[in-house]
Amino acid sequence: MKKYIVWIFFLAGSYSTSGQSTPDARLIISRIDENMSSRNRVILSDMIIHGRRNERILTAKTYAAGDNRSMTEYLAPEREEGTKMLKLEDRLWIYSPASDRTIQISGHLLKQSVMGSDLSYEDMMEDRKMTAIYDAQVIRNEQISGRDCWVLELNAKVPDVAYEKRVVWVDKIRYVPLQEELYAKSGQMLKKTTLSEVKQIQGRWFPTRINYKDMLKQGEGTDYIIREVAFDTDIPDYIFTKAVLTK
C-alpha cells in the first residue's frame, strides 16, 4: 500500500527550478519540469506488488493537481474497490467503503513508519521543490537502455531532508528521468527507481513503467504501470475535498 502512495506522490512532486544549482543542472531540471509537470493530471495505473508468495495487481485512478493535492480511488481487485485516499498539503485521509469510515493518518503516524514497514508517510509527502532542498550538478554522461543520459548528483543543502544525496539519470533528448538512486549520509544506497517505457503523451515524454526498489530488502520491488494519463483536464474542485471520499 505504502509503495504506491509513494509513486503517486513522486509523480506529483516536481523538479522545477529555484536556488543556485549549477547552470547546467538547473537547465536540465527545468527542462524536465517543462516536460513532465502539468497543471493537473489524471492517471489510470496498475500497481504490481511482488510479494514473497504471490503477485497482486491493484488498479487505481489518481487525480492530482499541482504539487500537493491528490486523490486516488482504487478500482480493482474487488476487495480494494472504492477505497480512496486523499492528500491535501500535509494531511492524509483514507476511506474504506467496507467500514464506511474515513481515517486520518496524522501526527506521529505520519512521521513514523507505518505497520512495520520501513517507509513513513512523511517520506512520501515531501512537497518541497527538489532545487529548494538540493544542490544539483551534472557529474557525468552515461547510457541507460541505449539512451544517452546526463547523470545528475543532488546533494542536500538543507538539513531536514530524508535523503542526503540523490543521483538521477536524465535522458538527454527527451528530458525524462530514467533512473534515480537515493543515498544515506554514509553513502549507502537505500532505494533505486527505474523508469522505462517512455511514451509521448499529449506532446510530452512520459515514463509509463516505474520500478521502485528498496535496496536493503529482498525482492523485486514494486512496479507501477501507467495505463492512461491525461494532462490539464478539468478536474472539479470537489474531487479534492473530504466529501468526495464517502461518495
Partner: peptide
C-alpha cells in the same frame, strides 16, 4: 546493516 535517521530526519545507514 542498520538504517536510522538523524536529528533532522535524514536517513543514514552503516
Amino acid at each position: 546493516l542498520l538504517r536510522w535517521r538523524d536529528i533532522h530526519g535524514t536517513f543514514d545507514a552503516a
